[in-house]
Design a binder for these strands. Structure first.
Lengths: 228, 228
DNA sequence: CGGCGCATGATTGTGAACAATCATTCCTTA
DNA sequence: TAAGGAATGATTGTTCACAATCATGCGCCG
C-alpha cells in the first residue's frame, strides 16, 4: 500500500478543475449558465459539492455569481481584457527572471516536455488543446518561478485569457504564435535574461494585438446615474 | 423606499469580512483554529454559511483548510513573507503610477480622509486599528488604480501582511512608520511619479526590514524524503 | 392588439439531521 | 511504567427536504 500520503485533491477541486478545463478549451463559452442540477448529474455528485465548486470558481473570477439567479461563465469586458494583459506584462518578466535563476535540469525538462505537447496538438490541428496548452505553459512558468502568490494569480489569469480569446479573437487567425514559447524557453536555458524578458513582453503584446479590442465596446451603462 | 438597488453584501461575504478584520487587528492570531460551530453561534448564523465563508477565506489564503480537521488562521513561513513583499514591490509601483494618472479630486480626498483616520488611531494609541488601517491604505490605493486584478490580489496580500507582522514583528518597535503614507500621498498629489514610486519602494523595504525574518527559520522538514 | 399582472414551474438558498472522521482518554498488557 | 489499542466525545463532511426567489407563460383588462 501507499504508505506515503499522497495529497489527493478533494472532490470540489476536481469539479472546479474540470470546469476550468472546459472553459480553457472553449467548450464552455462565456456567459453560459451553469445550472447546479445539471452539473451535479453530469459529474455524478451531489448539488452541494457543485455549489462549493462554483463559489470557488467565482472567487477565481472564472464564473460570475448572480444572487438567486445562478452561476454563469464570466465574460470579461474589453476594459477587463486590457487590464488583464497589463497585469501579465507586469508579472511575467519577473517570472522569467526568477525561472532563469532557479530552474535546474528537471525544470527545463518539464518546460521542454510541455512545449512538445503543444507542438503535438498543433500538428493534430487540435485548436482547443492548443489554446489550453498555451495557457498552461504560462501557468507552468509561474509555478517554476517559486513565488506562490504570482503563481496563484497566474492560475486565475490564464484561464481568463482563454475566455478573452474566445470573446475577442478573430476566428481564422492562428491566434497562437507558432514558436514564441520555444524561443522563450531557449533564452531561459541560455540564462539570457534580457532576451527572455523581451521575448515574453513581445509575446504578450502579440497575443493582445491579435484580439479585436476596438474601443466601440458595448459600454456597460450605469442606468442608475444616467437619469439621476 | 430605496428605489436604487444598493448592492448589499451577502451573509457569507459579511462573515468573511468580519473574520478578516479580526485577523488584521491581530485579534485572531496565526494558527488559531476556527471551529465552525463556535463561529456559527458567534455570528448567529447556521454552520452552512460559516462553512462557505471559510472556504472563501481559504481561497484568499487567509485560512488554511485541513481535510477532516478544520480551518486554521494561516501562518505564513519566512519564505512566504519574503515572496509576499517581493510581489508587492512588483505591483505597488504600478499602482502608484496608475493612481497618479487617474486620481481626481474625489479620489485624493478619500486618500486624505483615510490618512486622517490613521493619524487618529495613532493618537489614540490604538495599535490594532493602526495596523489594520495601514493595510487598508494600500488596499485603497490599489482600488483607485483601476486595475481589478491588482486590486483583488492586494485585497489578499494586505491581510496576509498583517498576519506576517503578527508573526515576525518585534513587538516594541513602532512597526508602522509614522509619516510614510502621508508623503506618498503628497507625491501623488504633485503627480511626481518618480518620487512617489521611490517612496513606496522604500516604505515596503522599511516594513520588511523591521521584521525578524532571520534565516534560522523553522525549516519545514520533508520527513518523507529525509529517510528515503 | 398590446401591456400588465398573476399563477405556475423551475432553480437557488437554507437549515437540520445523519454519516464519517479525527482527537482524546482510559484501559489493558507486556 | 510505558506502549498499544479500543471506546468515546467532538468536529467535520454529506445528504436531503423545505423555504425563498426568480423566470415563464397564460389570461385578463384597457
Amino acid at each position: 500500500m501507499n504508505t506515503i500520503a499522497k495529497s489527493e485533491k478533494s472532490d470540489i477541486a476536481l469539479i472546479a478543475e474540470r470546469i476550468t478545463n472546459a472553459v480553457m478549451e472553449h467548450r464552455l463559452p462565456p456567459g453560459v449558465k451553469l445550472a447546479e442540477e445539471r452539473l451535479a448529474e453530469a459529474f455524478k455528485v451531489s448539488r452541494t459539492k457543485v455549489r462549493h465548486a462554483l463559489t470557488v470558481l467565482a472567487k477565481e473570477g472564472l464564473v460570475t455569481l448572480y444572487p438567486n439567479r445562478g452561476a454563469f461563465v464570466a465574460s470579461p469586458s474589453v476594459q477587463d481584457a486590457r487590464e488583464l494583459f497589463a497585469t501579465r506584462r507586469l508579472l511575467e518578466p519577473e517570472v522569467v527572471r526568477k525561472v532563469i535563476d532557479r530552474a535546474g535540469k528537471a525544470e527545463l525538462r518539464r518546460l521542454r516536455a510541455h512545449i512538445a505537447k503543444e507542438a503535438e496538438a498543433r500538428l493534430a490541428n487540435d485548436r482547443r488543446a492548443v489554446i489550453k496548452l498555451s495557457g498552461e505553459f504560462h501557468m507552468l512558468l509561474a509555478k517554476l518561478s517559486g513565488n506562490p502568490y504570482i503563481s496563484k494569480l497566474m492560475d486565475e489569469l490564464c484561464p481568463l485569457t482563454c475566455l478573452i480569446i474566445a470573446l475577442y479573437d478573430s476566428p481564422q487567425t492562428p491566434a497562437c504564435p507558432e514558436d514564441e514559447h520555444i524561443r522563450i524557453v531557449e533564452a531561459i536555458e541560455l540564462k539570457d535574461e534580457a532576451t527572455a524578458v523581451s521575448l515574453m513582453l513581445h509575446h504578450l503584446q502579440h497575443v493582445e494585438n491579435e484580439l479585436k479590442l476596438s474601443v466601440d465596446e458595448k459600454v456597460d451603462i450605469d442606468w442608475e446615474k444616467m437619469f439621476a
